[in-house]
């Protein structure tokens, strides 16, 4: 464990909790892509199946359980409890265009051709693009609530910090995982445009709105 990984995990946790609280406090999931949240729930489920097969640490196990629990709670809030506020018309990204190629890629390029390993690889690839429905929704409506941008910023920071973690682990432990690194790079690049808007607008107290 190094500082980048720990802050990355905490940033990830902060993102998840910010989103849950935003929906819970405002009793509304307006502006949130339910599709992205379903994809994240699939990502955690596919990746953390190793909860059943291997134990790494109390920290590792508890974070996995919290991530999975929060992901399903978020999906429940969007599609059941506050369904009336869900903006389905603007959440029109075709997720099959992500899930199908990503599934194929996981079968073709993985570390070991075994069910658990393929599911892990699938989750890594899927996570890298799971935010696209959310970004698509924002580009479609042209705006995002400030709290939603804080969520996206924490989520983007998480994988960015993991990139530093991988550099660290390569130098000090000789460890590198090409699949995680390439997917992590893709994931981080997808946030670059958003990071720019976050710094130039949201941090200066303006609402994030895109030019028409």
């Amino acid at each position: 464990m190094n500082i980048f990984r720990l802050t990355g995990d905490l940033s990830h946790l902060a993102a998840i909790i910010i989103l849950l609280l935003k929906i819970w406090k405002s009793r509304s999931c307006a502006g949130i892509s339910g599709k992205s949240q379903i994809l994240f729930a699939i990502v955690f489920t596919a990746r953390y199946l190793d909860l059943l097969t291997s134990f790494i640490s109390v920290y590792n196990t508890s974070m996995k359980v919290i991530y999975i629990g929060c992901a399903y709670a978020t999906v429940y809030l969007i599609y059941a409890k506050f369904r009336a506020t869900y903006d389905g018309n603007h959440d029109s990204f075709r997720v099959e265009f992500l899930v199908v190629p990503v599934g194929g890629l996981a079968v073709l390029i993985n570390h070991t051709f075994s069910p658990l390993e393929i599911l892990w690889t699938f989750s890594i690839y899927l996570e890298s693009v799971a935010i696209l429905p959310q970004l698509f929704m924002i580009s479609k409506t042209g705006e995002a609530e400030t709290i939603t941008t804080h969520y996206l910023f924490c989520l983007g920071m998480y994988r960015t910090l993991y990139l530093f973690n991988w550099v660290w682990r390569f130098y000090f432990e000789g460890f590198f995982d090409m699949i995680a690194i390439v997917a992590g790079l893709v994931q981080t690049v997808l946030y670059c445009d958003f990071f720019y808007l976050y710094v130039t607008k949201v941090l200066k107290g303006k609402k994030l709105s895109l030019p028409a």
Partner: peptide, 10 residues
């Protein structure tokens, strides 16, 4: 590395 890798990251 082990054939059946252990993924220790989240």
């Amino acid at each position: 590395q082990d054939l059946e890798e252990q993924h220790d990251e989240l």
